[in-house]
């Protein structure tokens, strides 16, 4: 490096350090990164919970209500939108997790596969403890916002041949009591 190059370099270094010393270039506070990391964790847990709820619900309706339907009706009444939403959430989760070294150091395909495996495992466990049967009953009885309508809508869609009543006779009482038209 000749003298002129060295001088230019020093000038640039000084410019940057002067900007730092004068406060023109400011350091972001640690709390900013802590909040960002916390938001990522909360977002991940939320998306994971939603995807587990959707997939376990799909298993629930397919196993409990769709098994007696022929393929044509099954395909027409299956809540494809929920499945699509679950797939999008898995992709979003994979995208978030891909920022962490454990995820990006391994082949990209491992992340969605691991997420799907985790979701299916927990969904099957939820099926074993009859989570949706209990929660559906609870939501309809207590009129839990969002969930009551969710179960009602999809129960009706999966059993269109029952005059609009849901496929679970034990729940008819609760549906009737709610005063809604099925």
């Amino acid at each position: 490096m000749n003298e002129q190059d060295q001088n230019n370099k020093d000038r640039q270094d000084d410019q940057l350090l002067n900007k730092i010393n004068s406060g023109e270039v400011k350091m972001r506070p640690r709390v900013y990164f802590v909040l960002r990391a916390a938001l990522a964790v909360v977002g991940t847990i939320f998306l994971l919970a939603v995807s587990i709820f959707l997939i376990s619900f799909l298993i629930f309706v397919v196993k409990g209500r769709g098994s007696g339907l022929n393929l044509h009706i099954f395909v027409s009444v299956f809540p494809w939108i929920l499945l699509g939403a679950a797939v999008l959430i898995v992709l979003a989760l994979s995208w978030i997790l891909y920022n962490y070294s454990l995820a990006y150091r391994n082949p990209l395909i491992y992340v969605p596969l691991a997420v799907i495996a985790l979701i299916i495992l927990i969904s099957v466990a939820m099926q074993l403890i009859s989570f949706h049967e209990r929660f559906e009953r609870f939501s309809v009885r207590r009129r839990v916002p969002v969930f009551e309508m969710f179960y009602r809508k999809h129960a009706r869609e999966m059993m269109p041949d029952m005059d609009g009543t849901p496929g679970r006779p034990d729940l008819n009482f609760f549906y009737r009591r709610s005063g809604l038209p099925f």
Binding site: Q12, L16, V25, K26, M27, R28, P29, F33
Partner: peptide
């Protein structure tokens, strides 16, 4: 390079 150093300083808490 200049921008990289500015960003490094800004985000060094991370």
């Amino acid at each position: 390079a200049q921008e990289a150093f500015i960003k490094a300083y800004r985000n060094i808490q991370s």
